[in-house]
């Protein structure tokens, strides 16, 4: 296993492993439709004479450019629904993990409004953990599609497009500087084109981008991108 995996799990060192995963990122053209990311993964690490070590990980998260309370509430309510059959604290715990994970420390900023993030899940046996993975996967479309449908025909201005490109820069910064999945993929000799498919097709860096006070852009930065209980 590559260093990015064994640094946190020294018990995996020297084991052969198999990984299965589905990872997707959608970067819509219209700045009123948020970017989304979902990942579902399974690892099993084996060594002769020892029990295999397996676990599930994944989640889904949302990165709006222009925020709407109703979208954020719908997104988190759907995430909570995915978790409900698996205990009262499951949503809360994985929502917090998501907020903690998708945080750009060098900017002191969240990447988006979060969702669910889990890793190293093997408690309760394989069947139960696999059921949870499926519940997260099955709720992804229910969470994202209504938001896309609601916002896809919103007209937008060149200024709003510009803001989307600027914010996409933050997405790139996170994925290249902080994301453990990217690092794992590259360190394990993965297919680079697939690993970097999470990057947006167009992006812009603007030195000291100025955001107008009390604007929609200001609301994104100072309201939507602050972790909060949406439901």
């Amino acid at each position: 296993m590559p260093k990015s995996a064994t640094a946190l799990r020294p018990d995996l060192e020297g084991r052969n492993y198999t990984a299965l995963g589905l990872s997707l990122v959608l970067h819509p053209d219209n700045p009123y439709i948020p970017t989304t990311h979902a990942n579902l993964r399974f690892f099993i690490a084996e060594e002769a004479g020892k029990d295999p070590i397996w676990w599930f990980g994944g989640g889904f998260d949302l990165t709006p450019y222009y925020g709407f309370d109703e979208d954020a509430i719908h997104w988190h309510q759907t995430a909570k629904n995915a978790c409900l059959p698996f205990g009262d604290k499951t949503y809360h715990n994985y929502k917090k993990w998501c907020d903690d994970y998708f945080y750009l420390s060098h900017r002191d900023e969240q990447r988006g409004i979060g969702g669910l993030f889990f890793d190293d899940l093997n408690e309760g046996g394989f069947e139960k953990c696999f059921e949870f993975l499926q519940s997260v996967g099955n709720h992804f479309i229910k969470a994202y599609l209504p938001i896309v449908e609601k916002r896809m025909n919103f007209p937008y201005t060149p200024k709003e497009k510009e803001f989307q490109l600027f914010r996409r820069g933050r997405y790139v910064e996170f994925n290249l500087i902080q994301d453990r999945g990217t690092l794992f993929g590259l360190q394990s000799g993965g297919r680079t084109e697939s690993i970097l498919m999470s990057l947006p097709p167009t992006v812009k860096w603007v030195y000291q981008y100025k955001i107008e006070s009390k604007s929609a852009e200001d609301k994104l930065t100072n309201y939507f991108l602050k972790p909060k209980d949406w439901i």
Binding site: P2, N16, Y17, A19, G189, G190, R191
Partner: peptide, 17 residues
Amino acid sequence: LILIPIYGKGTMEEGVG
């Protein structure tokens, strides 16, 4: 995407990640 073994190298012994 379906048919591409994204990180695949072939066998368990080599480590498929």
